[in-house]
Amino acid sequence: MLIEARNLSYEYMPGTPFQVEALKNITLGIEKGSFVGIIGETGSGKSTFVQHFNGLLKPTSGQLLVNGKDIWSHSIDLRALRTKIALLFQFPEHQLFEETVFKDVAFGPRNSGLKGKELAGRVRMGLEMMGLDYEIYRDRSPFTLSGGEKRRVAMAGILAMSPEVIILDEPTAGMDPLGRQNFLEQIERLHREENLTVILVTHNMEEIACLADKLFVFSRGKIVLQGSPGDVFASAEQIREIGLDVPSLTRLLQELKKKGKNIRTDLFTAEEAAAEILCRLGGRDRL
């Protein structure tokens, strides 16, 4: 198990009237090379939870283990850990600060001790992974870029650290559909080709259903459902109860099944679903 939470709880502002129990007794495991989706309504604790993975938050009680070691035991160097388990916050373009794109992307790898050619190589790699041309962008000021470009630069800054795990907190919030699709395709490719472990926090069900191989559903600081997208979205009732919804494709398939059609409901791409519908209902068996 790469990352493991054991009975992890977290409270905001303990000991004041503003005390909030954000996470309650969470136990879960994330395997190397997997693509994990964490979904939940706004304020369900999902963002708070992922900030434990690289030691940005310290659990009020319980443990967080990486490669079987408690990260809060004193032998662990948290700064080194953070370059291995990278976290991209929501609206990451707000964290840009340097004069040039090059310097900003280089910030992460430089902090882990890289210099000169190696550093430049990493910056080039990061930018190119995000589809940004190194020569064109390296000397531009990040503040003159468009919103979409800024976000890709921020993401490049994370990738340039060449992490083993990447945690993305609502990475596509506020992006247009095409930008969204491109971005997710890049992530998917990295996951497939570089065996990058990806943890994606979102409340966009369509997005996560066809990407993740395991889902954890958070509600009010607890895990209420977990399993493959197929298993999780099979409990459509429960998903709606906590204020989320199943992908519209799943809803269509589930409605068809309710009408007595013998049809699979665990398909999440339009192509697969269309093929299934055609195959099961084609010609002789009309609605």
């Binding site: 953070r82 990278a86 916050f89 707000h94 964290q95 902090n111 882990s112």
Partner: peptide, 13 residues
């Protein structure tokens, strides 16, 4: 707090 964490995630000290 958010920016501090975001930079810490990039190894800022």
């Amino acid at each position: 707090d958010k920016i501090r964490k975001a930079q810490m995630a990039r190894g800022a000290d």
